[in-house]
């Protein structure tokens, strides 16, 4: 079995685990959001690479080209990117409000003031 032949999946898995680790391990809320972004970005790559057809051209209709890549996953992931942007925006807005309320965006400081998180 060719382990490196599917290198795009290795990139996806690596990015995903990096993002996941940042979400879990870092104490700063903004860093958590960045980790979350990385996590989502890995899925975008999963979708985009899935649409690739070997030897296929970009999906624009023109004469002389018979094999195209599948454009549908690309379109789908455009929607998912928008969702990701909205999530990040909302998350950052929440961090701003948390910083106003607690004077800190560090998980430990918030814990010390309220044991809720």
């Amino acid at each position: 079995m060719d382990l490196l032949g599917l290198y795009n999946y290795w990139i996806v898995i690596l990015l995903m685990m990096m993002g996941f680790y940042v979400v879990i391990a870092s104490g700063h809320l903004v860093k958590k959001l960045i980790g979350l972004n990385l996590f989502q970005a890995s899925v975008f790559i999963l979708y985009i690479s899935m649409g690739t057809v070997e030897g296929g051209a970009a999906p624009i209709l023109r004469s002389g080209v018979g094999v195209f890549s599948n454009p549908l996953p690309h379109v789908l992931i455009l929607t998912a990117i928008v969702v990701g942007v909205a999530t990040t925006a909302l998350g950052l807005a929440l961090v701003v409000r948390i910083k106003e309320a607690y004077g800190s965006a560090e998980e430990e400081d918030i814990h010390r003031q309220d044991d809720s998180l």
């Binding site: 979350l36 996590f39 909302l90 998350g91 929440l94 309320a101 309220d114």
Partner: peptide, 20 residues
């Protein structure tokens, strides 16, 4: 309560992981 903000943030992180 200000804890609503942290609760919402926590839900956002876990909810996004779930949705992803």
């Amino acid at each position: 309560d200000r804890r609503a903000l942290t609760a919402s943030f926590q839900y956002l992180v876990m909810g996004t992981i779930g949705a992803t």
